[in-house]
Design a protein around this nucleic acid. Structure first.
Lengths: 145, 145
DNA sequence: TTGCTCCTCACGTCACGTGAGGTGGC
DNA sequence: TTGCTCCTCACGTCACGTGAGGTGGC
């Protein structure tokens, strides 16, 4: 049996996360100690591993409840995962649009600034450093297109 | 002067969004009518357009407050936008990781399922449709890599 | 007694959505 | 009087984080 603190160590999750999962009914402790402490079993650890796996896949906690709650209902599981993938694709598209918009904004600001402050050496130095950093960001944002 | 309903029509935002911006102090009405109705001016519309622009770039409302509140403080503006770009890049990376994890999950489920139910015609039909849809999703998720 | 871990509320985050209950103008 | 728009609370969402105030075991 593990205390909540030990389970934090094993799983890498925070105490409040595990408390939250208890509140949702996702991961109830196997039992309580005489002093009402939460105690978790090996099965708890296995279940929490599954939960973390789905979490890394972007599945909502409500859907994870479905996935781990009902044993082996293949079609429903597939539906949930495909719906999650769809939502992730939507999210990715939204973020990409935002990246494009903000990159254009930054570019146009930089262009006008360079014209305005052409005479200031110190400003140029900072600007050069910034442009270097920025070039890195743009590569990072658009390298997968 | 525009009522809140008219401003909704002009901006495409919901009433509750505009109320929320009022609460934050982002977009206060130009004045109130005798019956305490919010009234917005042409300047309000211009300001709201700016707010929407930054919103589409993924800037947080707190940062938008900084950007539109202080007039023309170039360097600070650039800092905010670059920080936002950095956060967007982080977000994009997280979503991509989740996409990869869940695509692998779906693939492995599909593979085992096809073996298990090889004899069932009706199941195959549904599966074929699913795989077609899924192939679309995967292209969508990985076409930019 | 001193630390340490544990407990249970309860409120905050972010950008809104959704009623509930009431008022004002045509 | 009937609709319509407007108003102000106040609570819900999602996945937790962060105290506050108290208890139990060594």
């Amino acid at each position: 049996m593990y205390t909540i603190h030990e389970l934090c160590g094993i799983s890498g999750l925070s105490r409040s996360t595990i408390l939250y999962y208890d509140g949702l009914g996702l991961l109830k402790p196997a039992q309580r100690s005489t002093s009402n402490y939460r105690l978790y079993s090996e099965d708890s650890v296995t279940l929490l591993e599954k939960i973390c796996l789905y979490r890394e896949a972007g599945v909502s906690l409500a859907d994870i409840g479905q996935l781990v709650g009902t044993p082996d209902n293949g079609d429903l599981n597939l539906d949930i995962l495909e719906r999650t993938l769809y939502q992730l694709n939507q999210q990715a598209q939204k973020v990409k649009n935002k990246q494009r918009v903000i990159i254009d904004m930054i570019k146009s600001i930089k262009d006008t600034k360079i014209d305005d402050d052409a005479e200031c050496e110190k400003y140029y130095a900072r600007q050069a450093r910034r442009i270097a950093l920025f070039a890195f960001d743009i590569r990072d944002a658009s390298s997968h297109e």
